[in-house]
């Protein structure tokens, strides 16, 4: 019982950490992307006083927005690769910083 509790708590911290990075971090980037897009689009995309025209559009915001979406997309692709790889007895390795697919031990 106590052994199991120990193992479970040990695993729980890792899951919580990984989950916060991927499960809350990626949505945060996505939200920042939306924010940049809105800033880039200006006008009706942003909350402003009624009766006046909205803020000017900022093209740089659009670029930053899409860069952020690309990062999020990369994260999702990694997630899918992970599912597929583990299904075929492989694992993702981050030992070269960039992810590579290796045999599972």
């Amino acid at each position: 019982m106590t052994d199991n509790l120990g193992f479970a708590l040990e695993g729980a911290w890792k899951v919580l950490f990984a989950g916060l990075v991927l499960g809350a971090g990626l949505p945060l980037l996505f939200a920042l992307g939306i924010r940049s897009l809105a800033w880039g689009a200006g006008g009706e995309a942003e909350v402003h006083e009624s009766g006046v025209t909205g803020p000017k559009s900022q093209p740089i915001g659009t670029v930053v927005g899409w860069v952020l979406f690309a990062i999020v997309l990369l994260g999702i692709v990694l997630g899918i690769t992970f599912i597929v790889a583990s299904g075929f007895g492989k694992a993702l390795s981050f030992e070269h910083i960039y992810p590579t697919i290796v045999d599972k031990h």
Binding site: L20, G23, A24, A38, A41, E44, E46
Partner: peptide, 23 residues
């Protein structure tokens, strides 16, 4: 899962204040 979702939601709403809801 609940903690992660709560943190994620809170961050998202912080970030997008000032953006029109439809957008």
């Amino acid at each position: 899962a609940g903690v992660i979702a709560a943190v994620g939601t809170w961050l998202i709403y912080k970030v997008v204040t000032g953006v029109a809801q439809r957008f």
